[in-house]
Nucleic acid binder design. Structure first.
Lengths: 152, 152
DNA sequence: CCTTGAAGCTATAGTTGCTAGAGACATTAA
DNA sequence: TTAATGTCTCTAGCAACTATAGCTTCAAGG
């Protein structure tokens, strides 16, 4: 049996995040010790590692909730899981496209900045006037994969 | 003089977002009509367009705050503006790298899914076991450029 | 057996960048 | 004049956590 700290260390998830996952029902309520501390078994560790890994791949908690409930029914078709993964793939691809356009625009801005004074700065100028842009960086996706978390 | 609705339409920013920008001090307090409605002039429109454009390029509101205060001092060196833009460029580049790794992993998952039942599903399996991964998708950036907003 | 320090507990509030709703007032077109 | 918009303030909500405060529990050393 693992305490919440050990579990977090093994899965690479911070302790408050584990409690948060329990709170929103992504993890079941943990067993408790005599002194009301949470205790976890191997299955809980696997579930948490699954969540962590899916988060790393950019799945939302909602998508993960769906994937988890699918993985609890091993006899059904995996079409739904496949669809979720494909949607995620499309999402990632469209973000890459958009970011690539942004990158081009930023490079142009930075290259053209001669290092003079603000009045002549291309960065400020380009930001102030969209018509100076080469590319169409105008449509957007929905938030990146993770916030900055990293194993403690 | 523009009402807030016209201003938003011209700049491509929703009305509540404009009020929000004013609230957090990114836009100055607007003049008011006799009936206390906000009124804007050309300068306000330019400032808002600047913000909108910078948001489109993925700058945070904090970075934009800095850029705006720089652009108010046209005689100073543009080194600071240049640094902000370069930091943003590095940020975007690192997000692209990370997303590209994710994309490869997702493609592998999806390709290997034979479409059988959950018990054999590669998607579920790979998510459950990081050692099945080809790539190191383990370090992350800090949030994508925009939430889903788009001109009203 | 007792103490100390780390780890755990709950509960609440903060983060970013907005968006949505309620209920009241202003403006404009028919 | 009346109806339909538009605008006002205020509050609360979204994702996905993170941070803080003030407590209790646990494991190890003396």
């Amino acid at each position: 049996m693992l305490t919440i700290g050990k579990l977090g260390a093994q899965a690479g998830v911070k302790v408050p995040t584990i409690r948060y996952y329990e709170q929103i029902g992504l993890l079941p309520e943990a067993e408790r010790s005599a002194g009301k501390q949470r205790l976890y078994n191997r299955k809980a560790l696997e579930r948490l590692a699954f969540i962590r890994h899916a988060r790393d791949l950019g799945f939302t908690l909602e998508a993960i909730r769906d994937l988890l409930s699918l993985s609890d029914k091993p006899d059904q078709s995996c079409a739904a899981a496949d669809a979720i993964a494909k949607a995620q793939l499309r999402e990632v691809e469209s973000r890459i496209l958009r970011l690539t356009a942004l990158k081009a625009e930023l490079e142009r801005m930075v290259l053209q900045c001669a290092g003079g004074c603000i009045a002549d700065c291309r960065v400020i100028e380009v930001l102030g006037d969209h018509s100076l842009c080469a590319t169409d960086h105008h449509h957007h996706g929905h938030g990146e994969a993770r916030q900055g978390q990293d194993a403690p």
